[in-house]
Design a protein around this nucleic acid. Sequence first.
DNA 1: AATGTTACGTTATAATGTAACATTTTCCAT
DNA 2: ATGGAAAATGTTACATTATAACGTAACATT
Lengths: 164, 164
Amino acid sequence: MQKNKLKNPFKSANHKHKKCLQTALAAAKKHCDAFGLRLTPIRYRVLELVWQNHAPVKAYNILDQLKLAKSSAPPTVYRALDFLKEEGLVHKIESLNAYIGCDNPQEGHKSQFFICDDCGTVAEIADPDIRYLLRKKAHQFGFKIKDEMVEIKGHCQECRGSAE
Amino acid sequence: MQKNKLKNPFKSANHKHKKCLQTALAAAKKHCDAFGLRLTPIRYRVLELVWQNHAPVKAYNILDQLKLAKSSAPPTVYRALDFLKEEGLVHKIESLNAYIGCDNPQEGHKSQFFICDDCGTVAEIADPDIRYLLRKKAHQFGFKIKDEMVEIKGHCQECRGSAE
DNA sequence: AATGTTACGTTATAATGTAACATTTTCCAT
DNA sequence: ATGGAAAATGTTACATTATAACGTAACATT
């Protein structure tokens, strides 16, 4: 059993994300520079809007924000999100139809998400044990994995504090 | 490591599902009888329509089928699907916005899905190892799981046969 | 300058899902 | 059996999520 680098992704998600937002944006720039990709103003702005939460953000919510500065339409947002997804800079949470920033673009963007139903915070982990097990199971019946969605709902430690 | 009862859920999914459709419908009836639930004609019909595929079926596709017999509107379908989901008789595949029959209502309806991108077939497994591992990981940071979504996309053995 | 390519603008519409309220059906206690 | 509550369905309208289709701008290459 390998160790998980993130001890408590919820704890680490807590507050002062002006800092982690800056870090994420800088990382994104670096990533795009490295691969000759264009992190255009729209894409940058969308990424920024996604990162302003550790909770998933909806496409039309982003669109509303964009509209504050300038008339915009759905394709603008979806195109930017597609680009960012492609590069692993954001993930779509399928069970919420919403998007969340990822600070680990290089890692191949296969992650597992733990979503707190109370505060909405999402913790992303990239756990090799889970991935190994899924691959092993798939292999048992000749299934070749191309993509993985693991979204776990529940209650995080902080939110359980008061209730339990 | 515990054994998985289903050796190859894809193989078992192959054709002649007139049979398994009948079985599933009978099981659903039995389940509802046992719990004093009303498997009304609409609910029965929707379940039947879902079960006519081993691939996920979309709500509006079901609606179109219902309309053939009688004028119907979206709430009719979604209500029936909600009931069936509640009872574990169908599952929603979140990443496809589509629904698939489940023949194991009693089992607590926590399953993992392997979805073939080529033929659309979905294999459902209820694997204790995966669930155990997810719980273990969650426990490490105090997360209490309420619901689980595990949807794995790729290519099944049959579809890989020709290509590889 | 002509062409190619990528990103973006714009309009319209498709696809998915729900709110709200009216009506009908079923259940069951009397 | 029957009247009243609860459950299920009908109906209309609308909200939300996503994409198609086509045109234009900006910039690079030849």
